[in-house]
C-alpha cells in the first residue's frame, strides 16, 4: 500500500505524503479533494468511504489502517 501515498500526493498537489500527515493541514484540502480521495479509494481499493468517515481519519496513516482492516 505504498502507492496510495503517491496517489494522495497527486490529489493533494504535493511532492510526497507521509503517514503522519494530517489531511486537513494540506493547503489543497477541501470538499473537492475529499471527493477525489473517496473516488480514488473506491477505484483502487473497492471500498466506499463517506466524506464524514474520511474526516474521522485524522492522518494518512489512519486511512491506510482502515483500508488494511477492510482488506483482511
Amino acid at each position: 500500500m505504498t502507492d496510495i501515498n503517491e496517489k494522495l500526493a497527486e490529489i493533494l498537489e504535493v511532492d510526497t505524503v507521509n503517514d503522519s500527515d494530517v489531511f486537513t493541514q494540506f493547503d489543497e484540502w477541501d470538499s473537492l479533494t475529499s471527493l477525489s480521495i473517496i473516488a480514488m479509494v473506491d477505484a483502487n481499493y473497492n471500498t466506499n468511504i463517506s466524506a464524514e468517515q474520511l474526516l474521522s481519519f485524522t492522518t494518512v496513516g489512519d486511512l491506510k489502517n482502515y483500508l488494511n482492516s477492510k482488506k483482511s
Binding site: 470538499s31 475529499s34 471527493l35 473517496i38 473516488a39 473506491d42 466506499n48 468511504i49 463517506s50 466524506a51 464524514e52
Partner: peptide, 11 residues
C-alpha cells in the same frame, strides 16, 4: 450529499 450520491452510483 455529493459523496453519498457518488458512492451510491459507483456501488
Amino acid at each position: 450529499k455529493g459523496d453519498a450520491v457518488f458512492n451510491f452510483v459507483q456501488t
